[in-house]
Nucleic acid binder design. Structure first.
Length: 457
DNA sequence: GCATGATCATGC
DNA sequence: GCATGATCATGC
């Protein structure tokens, strides 16, 4: 079927809204177990009636529009979320470095995307999935500035001979995710003899989630930067600049200046502080567009006069059954640190607690950080494997004077991260795969490592 | 002084 | 009720 213009195409695409895949499939692809997951092909073939292809040109060539069929899911709290990142075209490391953004394979193929969102439901046959929304997506100017910057980051890594070290965490909206049957899907790279994992451009899960919520459930977010500002600065630079006027100032001075009440003990302290400094007082941080799309999380850090935090930094509690069920490549830990950026909001004490129990807190600055790939595939991986081994062999629990000791890797065991308890009390237990029960444990990053990252702030 | 196990406070 | 961000407290 040929479409004369995009209105015609969109009119047709919208007719799919509300339909289930078994109502669309005319060629029996749904029942073919070898045609795994290719719901997009059913749409191409049975709904739009054109031959399935994998050409470099866009799917609707005449219109320069690329078709993408992509799942969303419902979270436990009822909110809509992208089920996965949107995987775009494969990157040819050799060719891409010779191009400008405008000539890039990314832009050539994905400038206009016809997105068809369908709802994925666990344990339901694929034919029952329903198309929720057809949407013609064009990048806003502000998004485009960030994506240009992301594209340059990816290309400069290839130029630096580091195609094998690319990580999704390096960029904000546009990622370069691994794509291939397995870890042996390797390709050569132009400036290094080391082979690199095959990679494709992708729009990050967080970007797709934000987009789905906007398009499907009309949720609106607050933006902190416009296209003009983003033309000159990355999000990281922009944030440092916004926070700069307050650097080195005492917290109570800042609070007075901004007309906010800050109780450092309160859990909403960080929200209030950051949103006030960014000029969007009262907005919760997850409702800030740029943070939501780039999957930026927040952590407060309080440095002691020696430049180290007093405490290690805790993350989510560990589900030990999940740990042994997954393998490293698909583990929560790996994906989390590959896909998440952290904005550390750093404060410092200038006196020790013994010198002055009522010491003041000063704002030191912010730092946008993601765990480098070398670290993820190095110490983090070793740690993950070590824990997996202990869980499979059985955890050794020993009652001591101070509670129950275990043989999971503790602080300083690798300089990066460790396992430590985090629960209501010592009786707040969780089951282990070996049948025992242990006080709830969390994943922690060592304070020395945090201190190291924040040295330059 | 720090590792290490334990616990608090808050918000959903 | 529980996860999460944060902090306490003590023995080595």
């Amino acid at each position: 079927m040929e479409f004369q213009n995009e209105e015609e195409l969109l009119y047709k695409a919208r007719k799919a809204e509300g339909m289930k895949f078994h109502e669309i499939d005319l060629t029996g692809r749904l029942n073919n177990p070898n045609s795994k997951g290719h719901l997009g092909q059913i749409i191409e073939e049975s709904f739009f009636g054109y031959e399935v292809n994998s050409k470099a040109e866009a799917d609707f060539i005449e219109l320069g529009i690329e078709l993408k069929v992509t799942p969303v899911k419902e979270l436990k709290n009822g909110q809509l979320s992208a089920k996965e990142r949107l995987v775009l075209n494969i990157i040819d490391f050799h060719k891409e470095v010779q191009k400008s953004f405008e000539e890039s394979s990314f832009w050539k193929k994905n400038e206009s995307l016809l997105l068809m969102f369908y709802k994925w439901i666990p344990d339901v046959p694929r034919g029952e999935y329903q198309i929720l929304k057809s949407h013609l997506h064009r990048f806003s100017e502000a998004d485009l500035q960030i994506i240009r910057n992301d594209w340059s980051i990816i290309v400069s890594k290839i130029n630096a001979g580091q195609a094998h070290l690319i990580s999704e965490g390096d960029t904000a909206y546009l990622g370069a995710c691994t794509k291939g049957a397995n870890r042996n899907s390797l390709r050569t790279q132009p400036f290094n003899d080391l082979p690199a994992m095959q990679r494709a451009y992708s729009l990050k899960n967080s970007y797709m989630t934000t987009l789905a919520r906007k398009v499907i459930t009309n949720e609106h977010l607050v933006s902190i930067a416009d296209a003009i500002e983003l033309q000159e600065k990355s999000i990281g630079q922009l944030l440092s600049d916004r926070f700069k006027p307050y650097q080195g100032k005492a917290l109570n001075w800042i609070a007075r200046e901004l007309g906010i009440y800050l109780n450092t003990k309160s859990k909403s302290f960080l929200q209030i502080f950051v949103s006030a400094l960014l000029g969007v007082k009262g907005t919760s941080l997850e409702d800030i567009e740029e943070f939501s799309k780039a999957n930026i999380n927040f952590k407060t850090v309080r440095l002691e006069p020696n430049g180290l935090p007093r405490e290690h930094m805790s993350f989510r509690n560990i589900d030990f059954f999940e740990w042994v069920d997954e393998d490293w490549a698909s583990s929560w830990l790996r994906s989390h640190f590959e896909e998440t950026k952290y904005l550390f909001v750093v404060f410092e004490y200038r006196e020790t607690k013994t010198e002055n129990p009522n010491r003041k807190l000063y704002f030191k600055g912010v730092s946008l950080w993601n765990m480098p790939m070398e670290e993820i595939e190095g110490r983090l991986k070793d740690f993950w494997l070590q824990v997996e081994g202990i869980l499979k062999e059985g955890v050794v629990l020993n009652k001591t004077k101070r509670g129950v000791a275990n043989n999971l890797p503790g602080p300083r065991s690798n300089g990066l991260c460790h396992v430590r308890p985090k629960g209501r009390d010592g009786d707040d237990h969780t089951p282990l795969p070996d049948g025992q029960s242990i006080a709830k444990q969390a994943f922690w990053i060592d304070r020395t490592y945090i201190g190291e990252i924040l040295k330059e702030v």
